[in-house]
Design a protein around this nucleic acid. Structure first.
Lengths: 157, 157
DNA sequence: CCTTGATCTCAAGTTCACTTTAGGTTGAAT
DNA sequence: ATTCAACCTAAAGTGAACTTGAGATCAAGG
C-alpha cells in the first residue's frame, strides 16, 4: 500500500474504472478533491473512490453532474458520511427513479392502446400529437408523462 | 386548405410543434422529405405530420435520431403504413421501455438494500462499485442493470 | 545518470440534436 | 409597384461530459 493510504492517479483509474481525463475533469468541476505531491502529481484520499462510485451510481440514475455536485456538496467534508447522510441523498434518487418508472409504465400502456387503435397516424393520439391541438379537438398531451415529454424547444436528455 | 393538400413550413411548425430549424434539420438528416415550390420553398405532404409525431414519440422513448431514422426507413415510402407496420415498430419501443422499467426497479430496490447496510461506502456494493473487482472479491456489477450501467468510456445518455 | 512509463497542463476536438445569426429571396396582399 | 411576413441557405454556436493531442515533467529501476 502507498504512503499513508494515498492513492495515485493510476490506482484511482484502475479501481474506479474512470479514465484519468474524467477524474481530472471531475476535479476541475469540484466533484472530487486531490492533493498534490511535491512534483505536482495528484494524490487522492481513499474516500475519492467512494465519491467516484457515488458519481457513477448517481449518473446511472440520470442525474447531471451539476446535480451530483449539489448532492456531494451536502456531504460533510470532514467526517465519514453516516448512514443518515446516504439515506437523505438516496431519497432524491428514489423519487426520481419512481417517477421514471411510472412515466415509462404510462407511456408503455398508452402505446399499447395507440397501437390497438392505430391512432399514431391520427390527430387525436396523446403520445404522438401533444401539439396539434389547433388542428383537432385533441385533448392534448394528457397521456405523455411530464418527465418524459420533450417540448418543442428541447433540452438535453 | 392548401393546394392539393400540401403544407407550408409554417403549417408544419404550427401543427407539429417543432421549430422550423428542427424540421429542416430532420430533412437534412433524411428523417422526413420535402418537395420544393418553384421559388425553392419547402412543401410537405400531409404524412410528414405523422412522421414528426412518430419522431417525437420515439424520442420520448429514448431513441436517438439515428435509431429513429432506421425505424422510419423501414416504413413503406409509397403506401400508407398499416397497423402491422406500426405494431412491428412499437415492439422495439415496448422492449426498450420494459427494459428501462425493470432496470430502474432493480436499481431502486438495490438502492434500498445499499442504504440499509450503508454499503455505498464499501467495496462490495454492486451499485457503486462495478469496477473495483481488483480491490476486493466483489461480485461486481451483478446488480447494476446493463441498460443503465455506464461503463468507463461513457457514451451519451 | 539514464531510460521508461506515468503524469502533468492547456487548448482544442468530439457527439448529439438542434438553434442562432447573417444576409438574401419569395409570395401574397395592398 | 410596394411592402413585409414568411422563407431560404450556409456557417457557426450551444451545452454536457468528456477525450485527444502536444509537449513538458516526474518517479523509480537499472
Amino acid at each position: 500500500m502507498n504512503k499513508h493510504d494515498l492513492l495515485t492517479m493510476g490506482e484511482v483509474t484502475r479501481r474506479s474504472g474512470y479514465a484519468a481525463s474524467a477524474v481530472r475533469y471531475y476535479e476541475s468541476q469540484g466533484l472530487i478533491r486531490a492533493e498534490r505531491s511535491s512534483g505536482g502529481q495528484r494524490t487522492f484520499e481513499r474516500s475519492v473512490l467512494r465519491r467516484l462510485a457515488f458519481i457513477r451510481a448517481a449518473a446511472n440514475v440520470g442525474l447531471s453532474l451539476e446535480e451530483i455536485k449539489a448532492e456531494l456538496d451536502c456531504l460533510p467534508g470532514d467526517r465519514t458520511p453516516t448512514k443518515a447522510d446516504w439515506a437523505r441523498m438516496s431519497r432524491h434518487w428514489r423519487r426520481r427513479l419512481e417517477e421514471q418508472i411510472h412515466a415509462l409504465e404510462r407511456l408503455r400502456d398508452n402505446l399499447d392502446s395507440c397501437i390497438g387503435c392505430g391512432c399514431l397516424s391520427l390527430q387525436r393520439c396523446g403520445i404522438s400529437n401533444p401539439n396539434d391541438a389547433a388542428a383537432e379537438q385533441s385533448s392534448g398531451a394528457a397521456y405523455l408523462p411530464k418527465v418524459l415529454r420533450r417540448e418543442p424547444p428541447r433540452r438535453r436528455a
